[in-house]
């Protein structure tokens, strides 16, 4: 296998090097890639869409159809992880761990007689993971107070994507990471309480639906698919501002989808589809 690998690598590498010789020089402003299609995006996008961030304008308007499928790819990955890993049946209760809230002592509770579950009063005891029982007060509290700010920043990144680097994908990942941080610093159960499995999964589908639905709305209003000018009939500001608003709408869809899917994939991967404990 090693020799085969080297041969293939040498073959492919030589083709790539052969081509690179004829590439236009690196960072050349006069290269064909910079002269044919892209100048229009830079020069006209502000007039045509009222969005100063050209990347956002191209992403969510000129090539919005690509972006819709990009969101679909994420959604498909989420569904794929769920389909393959999720174990729908509940496991029979095995030995579980509880921590006494006041003293911080950890108890291991075996099965009761005849497989009956023993209940500890949850006001005094909290369930903890069997693989990771230590209680990290500082980490828990610091993360707990950071998360709202992280989420706020995520929302800012989505909303301000028209004017600064950012947008639905970046903001969605930040929002998703906030929930994942909660899960890492506390445990999966806490994160599940904040965002249940169904919520994450539905967010993921809903985001794609917001995007595709915005397009379909334009179609229903008599324009081409995803032609946001149609939204001028519903929103204030004329056809050019309608493009800007339409972009915000789909960016929100992207953000919702990405957040939902990131959390969904993480939960499936971290708990091997059992959703009881994990990172």
């Amino acid at each position: 296998m090693k020799i085969l690998g080297l041969v293939i690598v040498a073959l492919v590498g030589s083709v790539l090097i052969y081509a690179t010789v004829d590439f236009p020089p690196f960072a050349d402003p006069e290269s064909p890639a910079s002269l044919h299609v892209s100048p229009r995006y830079i020069e006209k996008s502000l007039d045509e869409t009222a969005v100063p961030n050209v990347v956002t304008a191209v992403l969510a308007d000129y090539r919005s159809f690509d972006t819709m499928f990009e969101t679909t790819v994420i959604f498909a990955a989420g569904v794929a992880c769920f389909l393959l890993l999720r174990i729908p049946r509940r496991r029979p209760p095995g030995p579980r761990h509880f921590r006494h809230r006041l003293t911080g002592l950890t108890f291991r509770v075996k099965d009761g007689e005849n497989g009956k579950e023993i209940f500890l009063p949850l006001r005094e005891f909290e369930p903890v993971d069997s693989v990771w029982t230590p209680h990290d007060f500082i980490i828990e509290k610091v993360c707990r107070y950071m998360i709202p700010f992280i989420q706020l920043f995520g929302l800012y990144v989505i909303a301000h994507g028209h004017h600064s680097p950012g947008g639905g994908f970046q903001g969605g990942v930040i929002l998703g990471a906030a929930i994942i941080l909660l899960s890492v610093s506390h445990n999966l159960r806490t994160a599940l309480k904040r965002m249940r499995e169904k919520t994450g999964a539905l967010c993921s589908a809903l985001g794609v639906f917001i995007f595709a639905g915005t397009g379909a709305l334009c179609l229903a209003l008599g324009y081409n698919y995803l032609d946001y000018r149609a939204l001028a009939a519903l929103l204030p500001g004329g056809p050019i501002m309608a493009r800007s608003h339409g972009m915000l709408l789909v960016e929100i869809g992207v953000g919702v989808a990405v957040m939902g899917t990131m959390v969904w994939i993480f939960k499936n991967l971290a708990s091997l589809g059992r959703y009881d404990e994990g990172l």
């Binding site: 308007d61 919005s64 324009y223 698919y225 995803l226 032609d227």
Partner: peptide, 9 residues
């Protein structure tokens, strides 16, 4: 799609 002419949209 989105009403843009071919090489751009």
């Amino acid at each position: 799609f989105a009403g843009w002419d071919p090489p751009w949209g």
